[in-house]
Design a protein around this nucleic acid. Structure first.
Length: 616
DNA sequence: GCAGAAAGGATTTTT
DNA sequence: TCCTTTCTGC
């Protein structure tokens, strides 16, 4: 693929901070990969002076694949990873200077929520029912790069946040946001370390820049120094993660923050046909705080956008399934050319059911259940008694009979004041008078773990997993069986720790999966939320749930929802269907609900839209 | 600590 | 409307 003059100019402009505003389908990934190649081939930088930052590990892998296709062998690749992964690397390389526990664990959000509930228990138990709100508040403060000491708060919040941090460290753990904050602190405090990484990141390329939050931006600025090798790429119109603390203001303020920065735009859309681009542009121009950009479609004379106007979700499901069935019979489309996009909830269930009757579909894998997390935590504890996070999860499980929040708090207090491991406390405490009430149950729990440990050396891995599942009483649960099933696909050396690393990564770091994700590999119709379609394109796109009150959600930021819709519309390479159902049933519709069409529909000029009203 | 009853809330997601 | 969390009484 040869570059347009516009793209070539962007690839080759070096020596100053560069902001690239790139609309949907303009070839962002390509430009990023080509720039890395350009730097290396022209000896402008070695691979040790280049770091590429992506939003997800999947995107990082796609970037590596593209570099390989462009002829750059893997051992000549620069570091390409997420910002969290880079922060983890920096902290692991400088653990002591950062004042962190050696071999710290990364707490996932379930583990973090348990720790927060403990913190609330310690500070003010009356607030325990509001833990979810507090969890979100702490998250948002961290996303703003604010630590407990930065908070001026007369009420309990500051104390809870403080205690939460203390308890995370007691468990030798960092949550995801801590990775960013601790990396910032480390670089701020130590000039030599900062200079080392600024040199390492001499050429720092950041993708999806519209979705970063202030804490992440702070880290990027620390790494970029003067910023003369900083290259950021994004589209303020596609900023859809404000609930994560992201804000389009960062990308729009970039040229003010870096005084000698240059801003360039990519205006040729290779992906979408003209009607879709023109319709999407007309829609997004209703947003106030944005930079207007030209977007020129290559593909003209294409179909109009279809507005599917249905009486009910049942009719909608039937019509879409029927359309897919008919169009798969011809030569034009394969299952993998089709995607069904929705905002969330169970809205796609009916269509998924209809479509899966005759064709393979791919749906997002559901979140880990509580039992799955407990199952994994028991396995972790068996391999490593010092894994206090895993121990904390196990203590909350039903299998730890008669050990509740009170016992856990006492154990925690004891461990803290005697400065010992949580696991050791479990054993020592059995002798202490204040634990008299729980002596029997603590012993039972410790014995259980020791017994499992014995079984581990006696049984093959899969047998052992089944044994653990039985012990916990989870052996009949399909989601647990799923995990056990995965142990069979493991290459040789089937040790428990290898299996756990495959599941969770080292110390909670998710293993970067090298294999292609299912949606690229399998020839199946894709069901996906609008938020997770980043970087995705499909010939045929159905956007379902175009109902007033549901999309945009009635109490949400309309401009962000409009950006989300803009992202969804611009995934289509060929045909775009916007689907509305007057009547919807299900959980997200709160039983049965009647809707008007989404106001977004009317923001697309009529000349680009063609209504379809099914009669059957 | 548990079972059963009542209240609460229902988005989006990465690391 | 329904599923998850929280409260109550044992």
């Amino acid at each position: 693929m040869s570059l347009t003059p516009e793209q070539k100019d962007i690839v080759q402009t070096t020596g100053k901070p560069l902001l690239v505003l790139a609309g949907p389908g303009t070839g962002k990934t390509e430009v990023l990969a080509q720039r890395i190649l350009f730097l290396i081939e022209n000896n402008l930088a070695t691979k040790e002076e280049i770091v590429g930052i992506t939003f997800t590990t999947k995107a990082a892998n796609q970037m590596k694949d593209r570099l390989k296709q462009l002829g750059l062998p893997e051992d000549e690749h620069p570091l390409i990873c997420t910002l969290h992964s880079l922060a983890t690397k920096i902290l692991r390389e400088n653990g002591e200077m950062a004042g962190l526990p050696t071999e710290f664990m990364i707490a996932d959000s379930y583990e973090a929520s348990l720790i927060l509930q403990d913190a609330i228990e310690d500070v003010n138990p009356h607030l325990s029912k509001h833990w979810k709100k507090l969890f979100e508040q702490i998250f948002l403060f961290k996303a703003q790069n604010k630590r407990p000491e930065d908070i001026d708060d007369k009420k309990m919040f500051k104390k809870i946040y403080q205690r939460y941090q203390e308890l995370l460290r007691f468990h030798k753990a960092l949550d995801f946001e801590d990775l960013i904050l601790e990396a910032c602190s480390l670089l701020e405090k130590h000039q030599e370390i900062r200079e080392f990484y600024q040199n390492r990141c001499k050429n720092l390329l950041v993708d999806e820049f519209q979705d970063i939050n202030p804490a992440e931006y702070h880290l990027i600025k620390l790494l970029a120094g003067e910023g003369n090798g900083l290259f950021v790429l994004g589209d303020d119109d596609q900023s859809i993660y404000t609930f994560r603390g992201g804000t389009p203001k960062i990308i729009l303020g970039f040229t003010k923050d870096f005084k000698n920065a240059e801003e360039k735009v990519m205006t040729v859309c290779f992906r979408c046909p003209d009607k879709i681009i023109l319709g999407a542009l007309a829609l997004i121009r209703n947003n106030k705080d944005r930079r207007d950009k030209e977007l020129k479609p290559i593909n003209r004379n294409a179909d109009l956008i279809k507005f599917l106007d249905c009486k009910s979700d049942i009719q909608e499901a039937r019509w879409i399934a029927e359309w897919i069935k008919e169009n798969l019979e011809g030569e034009e489309y394969e299952p993998k050319d089709i995607a069904i996009l929705y905002r969330g909830g169970d809205i796609a269930d009916k269509i998924a059911e209809e479509v899966s009757k005759f064709i393979r579909i791919i749906r997002p894998s559901p979140e880990e259940t509580k039992h799955q997390r407990e199952f994994i935590a028991y396995l972790r504890l068996v391999t490593d008694r010092r894994d206090s996070l895993a121990l904390r999860v196990c203590l909350s499980s039903k299998t730890a009979k008669k050990i509740g929040p009170i016992a856990i708090k006492k154990l925690r207090d004891y461990a803290e004041s005697n400065n010992c491991e949580l696991w050791d406390t479990l054993i020592i405490a059995q002798k202490e008078n204040e634990f008299k009430r729980w002596r029997k149950y603590l012993k039972a729990f410790v014995d259980l773990i020791e017994q499992l440990n014995k079984k581990l050396s006696q049984l093959p891995l899969t047998e052992f997993l089944i044994h653990v599942a039985k012990t916990l009483g989870y052996e009949k649960e399909p989601r647990i069986k799923e995990i056990i099933e995965r142990s069979k696909n493991l290459p040789e050396g089937n040790s428990l720790s290898a299996f756990l690393e495959n599941l969770r990564g080292k110390r909670g770091e998710k293993a970067a999966e090298r294999k292609e994700s299912a949606e690229d590999r399998e020839n199946a119709v894709l069901f996906i939320t609008m938020h997770s379609v980043k970087g995705l394109e499909r010939k045929v796109v159905f956007v379902i749930g175009m109902e007033k009150g549901e999309f945009p959600k009635s109490n949400s930021n309309v401009e962000e929802e409009r950006r989300l819709f803009y992202v969804a519309m611009t995934r289509a390479k060929d045909k775009l269907f916007l689907c509305y159902a007057k009547k919807r049933e299900g959980q997200s519709a709160q039983g049965v609900n009647f809707y008007d069409p989404s106001p977004f529909i009317f923001e697309i000029p009529e000349e680009y839209i063609e209504p379809i009203r099914p009669t059957t």
